[in-house]
């Protein structure tokens, strides 16, 4: 079980209809690659976030597969067009089965 996993998300609180906004996300995670050895020479088991998704009002915006070479605390910055007011849902999937989510509302105006 990865410790101290905390997602952080930044989405503007409002936008004009049709506007393209920038979304930033960050999750604290060790992203242990599974390739490293500990001081006894044993392999440290892989423990990574393997998938990240963002949905808006039930529709998928982005769906990312993460590989072991990605460094600690994966950060994503991407753009999305805002068709209407609603809610962004962010989901991170951990190798250990844990799922972390965060949501952000956006208003039109």
């Amino acid at each position: 079980m990865a410790e101290n996993v905390t997602p952080r998300v930044r989405v503007p609180s409002s936008a004009a209809a049709g506007e393209v906004i920038t979304i930033k996300t960050l999750i604290s995670h060790i992203m242990e690659s599974g390739q490293r050895k500990n001081s006894d020479g044993n392999l440290i088991p892989r423990s990574i976030i393997n998938r990240f998704t963002c949905d808006f009002n039930g529709q998928n915006v982005i769906d990312v597969t993460l590989e072991p070479a990605i460094s600690t605390n994966p950060y994503f910055e991407f753009q999305a067009q805002v068709p209407e007011a609603g809610t962004y849902t962010f989901t991170w999937y951990d190798d250990d089965g844990s799922v972390y989510t965060d949501t952000k509302d956006i208003a039109i105006g």
Binding site: T6, R8, R10, L26, S28, N73, Y75
Partner: peptide, 11 residues
Amino acid sequence: FDNPGMLFVDA
């Protein structure tokens, strides 16, 4: 938001 040190502040 871009400062990864803030994760440790939260912790």
